[in-house]
Design a protein around this nucleic acid. Structure first.
Lengths: 139, 139
DNA sequence: GTATGTGCAAAACCTTTGCAGGTTA
DNA sequence: TAACCTGCAAAGGTTTTGCACATAC
């Protein structure tokens, strides 16, 4: 889903389209590196010098609740965010702290709505390890 | 793997078997509810009134590094721990904040050591949703 | 004009660190 | 005794909250 489609959906659902919300969503659209809140905040601050961390947190939470972005809890005590909401695996390198998208086909839970009587609302398939770049650095 | 086997393994690998380490591992062995650090700390404090949070954190990190327990980052900003280290899915209820084990067979990554050139060291298949108990409470 | 959103600062919370004192081999 | 471990307190880092001001419908 492209940026305008998401902005339109947000608007149609009755959410005020503020400059800050536009900026956060646009930033995630243009930066598919699974940035942390801190990264998002400091990047936006370059354009919007008065934006506050509280607004960034509020906005990310709001966009997540509208189902327009995805929260990633793969790194201990730190949030990452992803513009792409379609289910896909995330790989976290514990050496460089980068999050990568990886493509895995044949998930046995694909399309399932329930498991053991629990209602499935979101899949978070995480993988931890050492990424290809860090493997090369190994010394 | 039962408690004595893990304690033996810890000892054989050259790790000092202190009362605190024994207590943390034993607590996880007897409480398979994926407790948070806080829950572990306050529970152990009932028996060992002088135990400190730093020791609990250190011990959990140490046991994790020995591969004897599993760290769960499913809840935003909070760590849970699991005595069971065999790969299995975890379900997190965002309503009651409980973590459940769920059994999923046919993971396409089972046994794989690499993906996209990245070295897989740990799988964390997380599912978020509303648990069966909270679905009943719905009102 | 009322409801909603933002920015600032402080608070709350979780985790890590430094170090003195205690324990283990 | 030398190495390691624990407990306490403080520090560090992330996220949340409260409230005055600003903005939107």
């Amino acid at each position: 889903m492209n940026l305008n489609e998401k902005l339109t959906e947000l608007n149609e659902k009755g959410c005020t389209l503020t400059i800050q919300r536009h900026a956060v969503l646009e930033y995630l659209y243009e930066n598919r590196t699974h940035p942390t809140v801190e990264k998002i905040y400091y990047s936006l601050k370059e354009k919007f010098s008065t934006i506050s961390k509280a607004t960034v947190y509020n906005t990310l939470e709001l966009l997540k609740n509208y189902g327009l972005i995805q929260e990633i809890t793969i790194e201990k005590g730190k949030l990452h965010f992803d513009y792409e909401v379609k289910p896909h695996h995330h790989f976290f390198c514990h050496r460089c702290n980068h999050v990568y998208d990886v493509d895995v086909v044949g998930c046995p839970l694909a399309g399932k709505k329930m498991i053991d009587g629990h209602k499935i609302e979101e899949m978070r398939p995480y993988i931890i390890g050492t990424c290809s770049k860090c493997l090369k650095k190994k010394g």
